[in-house]
Design a protein around this nucleic acid. Structure first.
Length: 242
DNA sequence: GCCAACGTTGGC
DNA sequence: GCCAACGTTGGC
């Protein structure tokens, strides 16, 4: 773990005293079980036409449905400004990412089941927006790509980590992370305010950002974008700021 | 710094 | 299984 602490996504860190006394009910309901089947190969350049090709495998529970869908693009929130969480600075800006070896980092610290399930759905090569949150100027600053698919998040077992989870067992880790690599800065900063203006307009006229999760699931730190949403947001970098 | 949104926890 | 209390997220 050569990396500074970063990213965050809490909401479920249980500071219980007793270790693995019980499996939280909420976990069973909102998380997909450990599936034995390895995900088939990434939909690389295959016939996947993005959103149109999402597939739903067998229905299990209500909460897990997002995890059964194949998405192609993502948005990852990270805090670019210093903030202490249990005495540890969780700041991780795009500049911090660029400073990593290979401009690559593990996306640890996600402690929300829905976000975790999205992490687990990510495939190598898929692109994501790097979004600065909880800061002066929230918005999209860069594009990153998935370079390693979900594997256990080691910070859940580290008592000194702000995202330590005493209820997680090594034999059956609750939390996952992926590795992401910097691809490029967006041609300009794309502020939340601008994306939101389009979202509001699209709610009225049925445009691509109508159901963007940035607004419909405002607290979710890992979220999927449809092909249409991704393309539309990307097209904004060619425009002049408002 | 405020506070609305919303996920989690736990009493009943 | 409901729901009030609580804690976190994150814009403003």
């Amino acid at each position: 773990m050569p990396w500074p602490s970063r990213k965050r996504d809490k909401g479920a860190v249980a500071d219980k005293k007793e270790p693995d006394a019980k499996i939280a009910k909420t976990e069973e309901e909102t998380s997909d079980k450990e599936e034995e089947e390895k995900p088939a190969k990434p939909p690389a350049g295959s016939s996947k036409s993005g959103w149109k090709n999402w597939k739903k495998t067998k229905e299990s529970e209500s909460g897990g449905e997002e995890s059964k869908i194949t998405y192609c693009h993502w948005l990852l929130k990270s805090e670019p400004e210093s903030r202490l969480e249990k005495g540890v600075d969780v700041k991780f800006s795009v500049d911090d990412l660029k400073a990593q070896p290979n401009q690559t980092t593990c996306w640890d610290g996600v402690r929300n089941y829905q976000a975790r399930n999205f992490l687990r759905a990510m495939k190598i090569g898929q692109q994501a927006f790097f979004y600065h949150s909880n800061c002066k100027e929230p918005g999209i600053v860069a594009i990153v790509k998935i370079v390693k698919e979900a594997y256990p998040d080691h910070t859940q077992f580290d008592q000194k980590d702000p995202h330590y989870d005493s209820t997680s067992r090594k034999e059956n880790p609750k939390w996952s992370m992926v590795d992401v690599q910097f691809v490029r800065m967006t041609k300009r900063f794309i502020p939340l305010s601008e994306i939101k203006a389009h979202h509001l307009a699209h709610k009225a006229d049925g445009g691509p950002l109508k159901d963007m999760m940035l607004f419909t699931r405002q607290r979710l730190s890992i979220q999927p974008l449809t092909q249409e949403q991704f393309d539309f947001v990307l097209s904004l970098e060619e425009e002049k700021p408002h």
